[in-house]
Amino acid sequence: MNKTKKIFKAREMTSFLFLMGLFIIVGILNPSFMSVNNVAACFNTSVVYTLVAVGMAFTIFVGEIDVSVGSNLGFVATVVGSLLRDGANWGFAFTVGIIIGVIIGLINGWGVAIMKVPSLIFTLGTNGILRGMMYIYTGGAWVENLPKSFKDFSAVTLIGKFTVYYCCAVILVVLIHMALTRTRRGRYFWAVGDNAGGAELVGIPVVRTKVMAYVICGILSAAAGIIFCSRIGFVTSASGNGYEMKAVAACVLGGISLTGGVGTVIGAAIGAVIMASISYLLVFMGFSSNYDNAITGIILITIVVFDALMQRRAAVKNRRARLVARTAAGTAKEAGE
């Protein structure tokens, strides 16, 4: 157990070191980057990605995936934004947003865990439905003229240069991480993702755990939608498009394996910062934003290929060790006889 814990740690440490390396390289190439403002901005802009990626991480832990997070985020942003624009109070609007997230999570969980539909396909379907509902709700118009206090709240800082949103997100991620690693129910998520059949046999409620993962993913995406609304200040009918892919990428960068059962939410959060900073860092390195996607793709592919090769090497090494041990035991037994 201790050993696997160490591996988890190593996996997210790699991502963290990668992020630090990225900052240092950019800092060397362009010393003007190395200011508190710039580094903090990298973290602050990542808040929406962080929440979505952590939500996505839950569904990946249990061995599934949720590609409806992007339109979930967009739909919640639309609803909350229009409620606030029409003068609803914050508490009411946020509650409605979170409830929508829960409902979306329940629907996804029902389809995937209870109806046993492959998760990619089912959430692809809900993705389309939600995106369409967004158009119906707004009639294709932008949600604008949000209350100034709501928009300004996104710039309020709590600790140093870090915004309230980012601080809340970090606290949330740490709490979730504690809950996942320190409680029995938290560990269920990894158990289910690692071996659903085995988990079922030892009495873990597999279906309930999977539904739970989707509900948490829905809630976090909804929260991301609310923050998106506050940070950007307007919502178009294409808002949130492509966030699902960025969230998966963030999880992978954070050392989470898409086969399920491996990784931590802290890794996902670090991956989200990497994803969010790339375009910001490129500007400081003198590249145009045109390089954004190409570099993201190269980094993503390099990391996963490197990771896969390392894992294979480890697997081969383990097998060899096992074989050696077995033959050693065999000869010992023979000698004993």
Partner: peptide, 23 residues
């Protein structure tokens, strides 16, 4: 040949090729 999950590789590929197209 490297045994990476198809979804991840092609996800990276989608970023890479759309980025290349832009370049």
């Amino acid at each position: 040949y490297c045994g990476v999950q198809a979804m991840v590789v092609t996800l990276g590929g989608s970023f890479l090729y759309s980025g290349l197209a832009l370049l």
